[in-house]
Design a protein around this nucleic acid. Structure first.
Lengths: 203, 203
DNA sequence: TCATTAAGTGAATCGGCATTCATTTTTTGT
DNA sequence: ACAAAAAATGAATGCCGATTCACTTAATGA
């Protein structure tokens, strides 16, 4: 015979799952990827290590979930902000600004989305590469549109988009790792200008 | 009593050390960082695993040696080529071109110098960050000079240099991982143009 | 309340890899 | 050729953290 969970139990389990994800995010943000062990996550979430495996098949799935969650969060904010503008330039610019704002508020997201973590198995690492790829292809869509509108000269938009993302990535990593530039928001403006010139914006 | 090594033995040991480094480079280039185990290195070098430790105190030192060697190799080539030009723009441009040429010839160097490998311990990882930093500061030196000469407008050269390196890094990583762009040398020209415009080159 | 099922526990297991070390082989100097 | 010293060997050790599992506790439904 099969027993059905009551709502109370369902709720408890849901909140446990949430707490595990939250614990993972916290440990990742505060400490490092390396110290994100199942034991420490379980401890922070207030459960036994074995319990973890009742909620996630393995560590990989957990990290994947966390990454996905952070990515969706960021994308949601970007989309909301983009919808306020008509011009593709403005959309592109605001996308970057939102990214920077989120990264400043939650450094963990920046680390997770921009750093590489080959310490995890290969197959999984593709998740990270995937996110980077999707950032590039989002920029590429904007660039293609700008090109169609004749607002930037003919160019290989894949390379331009990659370069574009590369400038941000490198500066943000420097900010994360070296603490330079001190003011990332200011640097963001500089970067936007750099890239607009680089794209050959016709103004 | 202490015995002195004969030249023959010295030579044998020197060549063994070389072969270990070579084996490490090969495994790294052909396979991946993960599969670069002492056992596999020793096997490829034709020695027993224990013998490795007669030549290197530990794995960290070996990798550091390999990285240093590749970095010096690249820098040597860049310096040689730069010396042929007078204009800082030309020096900057040729630096990039040499990098790309070397990266095409030896993908392992590109991976080692541009990827991050947090799977190795922290203290060591700084070696990689260090290299990235030094690439940026080399570019910054050129940009400062260009600015002094009034060939580019006033700007935060640290950010510009970081952005500059970022564009290359991102495109080269895409080339390594996605196989796109197919022709890296062609992309290099595009990138140089992108960055020249981005810097606001006054021509 | 009670028998049954499900959730929770954490010590023990397992796997992978760097490092060590007792033993063997080679080299050295007489 | 021989004894001392150095180099080489690779099986054994140690470590570390993910995953498992025999057992305990809680929840379910009659």
């Amino acid at each position: 015979m099969v027993y059905n969970k009551t709502q109370r139990v369902k709720d408890k389990m849901d909140s446990r799952r949430e707490r595990i994800i939250k614990a993972a995010r916290e440990i990742f943000t505060e400490d490092s990827f390396q110290s994100m062990s199942i034991k420490s996550i379980a401890k922070k979430a207030g459960i036994a290590t074995g319990t973890f495996y009742l909620y996630f098949t393995n560590k990989e799935v957990l990290v994947e979930t966390v990454v996905q969650e952070m990515y969706k969060e960021l994308m949601g904010l970007i989309k909301a902000e983009r919808s306020k503008y008509e011009s593709v330039f403005d959309k592109l610019q605001t996308s970057m600004e939102v990214c920077i704002k989120v990264f400043i508020r939650e450094k963990g997201i920046a680390k997770l989305l921009l750093k590489h973590f080959p310490e995890i198995n290969m197959a999984f690492n593709n998740k990270f590469t995937e996110i980077e790829k999707s950032l590039i292809s989002l920029v590429k869509i904007d660039l293609d549109e700008l090109q169609d509108q004749g607002l930037i000269p003919q160019q290989n938009t894949y390379i331009s988009a990659t370069a574009f993302v590369g400038t941000f990535r490198q500066v943000i990593l420097s900010w994360l790792q070296e603490g330079q530039p001190e003011n990332l928001e200011e640097a963001c403006q500089t970067l936007i200008e750099y890239n607009m010139r680089g794209l050959g914006k016709i103004s």
